[in-house]
Design a protein around this nucleic acid. Structure first.
Length: 159
DNA sequence: GCCAACGTTGGC
DNA sequence: GCCAACGTTGGC
């Protein structure tokens, strides 16, 4: 029996790290450092599995929206930026022998020809229950398969 | 740049 | 354990 995949949405500010930065990264892969929210951490640490699919969301962007997809290619391990005093993500409370923050690696899947924008997502009745629309501040969040597929379809229709 | 929503911190 | 104060996120 094939194991079932989980679906996620991860937010990044394109001024900091956009999907195009991911496309330019070595092996089109990056580590998702800097998450300092317990709920988001728990999803990454406990539930994200290799092969899970991710909607790559541009927050604080014009327009905000889903810019493409990625795949989880390495399961959770300590976020080493928390140990680095020179990092803006440094957290003295995260110890190497007892890390507080975790991250995963993701690899680019597709860059959408056009961003599926937040206003477009808001217009779709079947997407009304997305965490994105109901807990706008959570930067790593689960997405239902149906929602993931709907957004892929919207991206295709635009291209 | 504003500000609503919400998570975190810390005094008590 | 409550909750006020504060900081951050993120849409607009």
């Amino acid at each position: 029996m094939a194991k079932s995949k989980n679906y996620w949405l991860m937010k990044s500010e394109p001024d900091v790290f956009s999907i195009h930065d991911l496309a330019k990264s070595k092996s089109k892969t990056t580590f998702w450092d800097g998450v300092r929210n317990y709920q988001a951490r728990n999803y990454m640490r406990d539930e994200m599995k290799k092969g899970d699919l991710v909607l790559f969301y541009h927050s604080n962007a014009n327009p905000p929206g889903v810019a493409g997809t990625a795949v989880v290619c390495k399961e959770s391990y300590p976020d080493f930026s928390a140990f680095d005093q020179n990092s803006k993500y440094f957290d003295a409370k995260s110890k190497k022998d007892e890390p507080r923050w975790f991250m995963v690696d993701i690899k680019l899947d597709k860059v959408f020809a056009d961003v599926v924008t937040l206003p477009e997502i808001k217009e779709v009745a079947s997407l009304k229950e997305m965490v994105l629309l109901n807990n706008s501040r959570l930067s790593v969040q689960p997405v239902r398969k149906k929602e993931f597929d709907t957004i892929l379809k919207m991206a295709k229709q635009k291209s």
